[in-house]
């Protein structure tokens, strides 16, 4: 039992610093780094503060923003979804099949929903640890994607490309995407009873009272399954966006996104132990990741080294979050 009255001033200060006693977590650290990085990049490079780079940046950040929102939904529940990257790959593979867009596009989201459903059922009904369930699903889905499209290639329907790379009223499509995704994400996470219940269920797990949410009469199992379905759907949406950008199918396109999305969520202040987090933190985290990638590109850093640096960032962020449980 935590006793706020009994905690020392030092712990309370530390709590505040790491956003432990706020439900949004510590999102302003991400904001601070974004501001600092932006200033640094504007000051040191000539190409950064151009409209072209800004629009580029948004398009680069968009898939990660989308997939990170889905990832956040399950992380708030004290879960995790390692299969999102494979779902993205599968999405591009399906979109690059021969077929009418009217068939392919619904198929993409149906497949994603089915994958999320299997994840959720394995977790709540078959008692499998979320990480193990989604880890194995990562391989199964990747295999299916590789069966459909062994190597990168093919072409996606024009409508997909236009929706992603076109412009409307002179405003580039990614701007509309950003508005829509943020609106949908906000509605789910902060603008619905479902969203509030996510925090309740995750908070119960994190504070060792996993029965509490159930005792309040919440449908915890159904909400968990729904969360994994949403996570997969967001991944499919991110895959759709990438498919539009590269205009082809690629089974390797999602490989980095499982860890990148977890990094973005964690860096945005969402606690991996559940119950604490927020949409704005997650979006800031994803933007920060894209900004760093952009900056490293402008600094001509090797792509391989960039991968290593992202790994270091992930380790730092998760090592700073405190957790009671040891293991998986």
């Amino acid at each position: 039992m935590t006793q706020p009255t009994g905690t020392s001033r030092k712990t309370r200060a530390a709590n505040r610093l790491f956003g432990r006693n706020s439900r949004q977590g510590n999102w302003w650290a991400a904001l601070l780094i974004i501001v600092m990085t932006t200033i640094l990049l504007i000051a040191t490079t000539d190409d950064f503060a151009t409209p072209r780079n800004a629009s580029n940046l948004l398009a680069q950040a968009m898939p990660l923003i989308i997939v990170a929102i889905g990832q956040m939904i399950v992380i708030v529940l004290a879960g995790m979804d390692l299969s999102v990257g494979s779902v993205m790959s599968l999405t591009t593979a399906i979109l690059a099949l021969d077929g009418a867009p009217i068939v392919l596009i619904p198929l993409v989201f149906l497949a994603a929903a089915a994958i999320g459903l299997v994840n959720g059922i394995a977790i709540v009904r078959l008692n499998v640890h979320p990480i193990i369930a989604t880890l194995s699903m990562q391989f199964i889905v990747l295999g299916i994607a590789q069966l459909l499209r062994p190597v990168a290639g093919g072409s996606v329907p024009d409508v997909v490309v236009n929706v992603v790379t076109g412009a409307f009223l002179g405003i580039p499509a990614p701007v509309f995407w950003a508005v829509a995704v943020v609106a949908i994400g906000w509605k789910i996470v902060h603008g619905s009873r479902f969203g509030l219940h996510l925090f309740a269920i995750g908070g119960g797990v994190a504070s060792g009272q996993s029965d509490t949410a159930h005792n309040f009469g919440l449908k915890d199992r159904r909400n968990i399954v729904l969360a994994y379905i949403l996570s997969a759907l967001f991944a499919a949406l991110a895959g759709f966006f990438i498919a539009g950008r590269i205009a082809s199918g690629d089974p390797g396109v999602g490989s980095q996104f499982a860890l990148d999305s977890i990094t973005a969520v964690a860096i945005g202040g969402t606690q991996l132990s559940g119950g604490v987090g927020g949409l704005h933190g997650t979006i800031l985290g994803a933007i920060l990741m894209a900004l760093l990638a952009n900056g490293m590109n402008l600094a001509n850093l090797s792509a391989f080294l960039q991968g290593a640096i992202k790994g270091v960032i992930l380790l730092l962020v998760v090592a700073l979050q405190s957790r009671k449980k040891m293991g998986l």
Binding site: M80, I131, I309, G311, L315, S322, K324, L328
Partner: peptide
């Protein structure tokens, strides 16, 4: 540090892989 073992060891792999490829 009680870091999630999957995340920690995956991140270590990512770091080493990136470093070696570099």
């Amino acid at each position: 540090r009680r870091v999630s073992a999957v995340i920690a060891t995956l991140a270590v792999t990512v770091i080493i892989t990136g470093f070696v490829q570099f």
